[in-house]
Design a protein around this nucleic acid. Structure first.
Lengths: 149, 149
DNA sequence: AATACATGTAACTTTAAAAGTTTCATGTAT
DNA sequence: ATACATGAAACTTTTAAAGTTACATGTATT
């Protein structure tokens, strides 16, 4: 089953973006993520729709953070990507009238809902600025002026 | 992403098997699950390998429970199916040397491990006999003698 | 105005793992 | 001998993310 690595990728680039002065192009982000610019634009579009980043077309354009990292949680990004089911485990036909099947699905669903609630709660507790808080290097480089172009 | 419905399906048939006198054939189980006998045998093979069910070839053969439902938990079956990752969320290249990517993956992995631990703990607390404990009907029918063939 | 650059988007193909299918070998009561 | 049932190999199908190709749209720069 193919894994959804969008959350991991987006968090990665968002933090890098915070270390840049100018906008980041899809091309550069794609190189950073070992992927394609179209995949980057497609995924970043979700974050733009929720107001976390902004995009500018044309020469000198690209993507910039619209909100400080301290105001963005893992949950925010997870939900911005469209909170599809986080589990590979699925239930069988939910329109069944077999009491056994209903009882089985109820038990599995209950456990999954509790686990998902915990996952989202953990995601909610972490803002993006905290992820690299342990790395003094990154905090020092943070917003350091540098020549562009 | 295609969901893994094996756990749901196997729990369903295991409980039905407990209500039967003779062995259940892959054919009958497939009909019950709206699928194919080969899919049933392939999945049931995992449970047989772990000793939860037994299979008998030839005329009058089929599948039978090898352990009482009260001795089987959801976790047992989940693990018997091969405890692959329960999340659709994946991490990016784990062999990276980018500190940001490492920090991001660490945070996501940490949350997922906690959530998975809770899921498995919930699975562990439920034995299969408890799933239909609320249905007096099923308990009454339980092991009732009935003519076969 | 022409050009180079960058996003926006449509319309595909590829990928991975469960699920589904076909076919036949093997084993076992009657 | 026969009918029945599992075991297993060797496929195809399914699903959504990922990857790709191609082009339209918009915007600084010269």
């Amino acid at each position: 089953m193919r894994k959804d690595s969008r959350l991991s990728r987006m968090l990665h680039v968002l933090i890098h973006m915070d270390h840049l002065d100018g906008p980041a192009t899809s091309e550069k982000m794609a190189t950073m993520l070992s992927t394609n610019p179209v995949v980057v634009r497609r995924t970043m579009a979700h974050l733009r729709d929720q107001g976390y980043v902004a995009s500018v077309k044309g020469h000198g354009g690209g993507w910039t953070l619209a909100v400080p990292l301290s105001n963005i949680t893992l949950l925010d990004i997870h939900q911005a990507l469209g909170d599809s089911s986080v589990f590979t485990i699925g239930l069988t036909d939910e329109h069944t009238n077999c009491p056994i099947e209903i009882a089985v699905n109820l038990a599995i669903r209950d456990a999954m809902e509790q686990a998902e609630a915990l996952l989202l709660e953990r995601f909610k507790q972490v803002t993006l600025d905290k992820l690299t808080a342990g790395f003094a290097d990154f905090q020092a480089e943070h917003h350091e002026p540098s020549p562009v172009e």
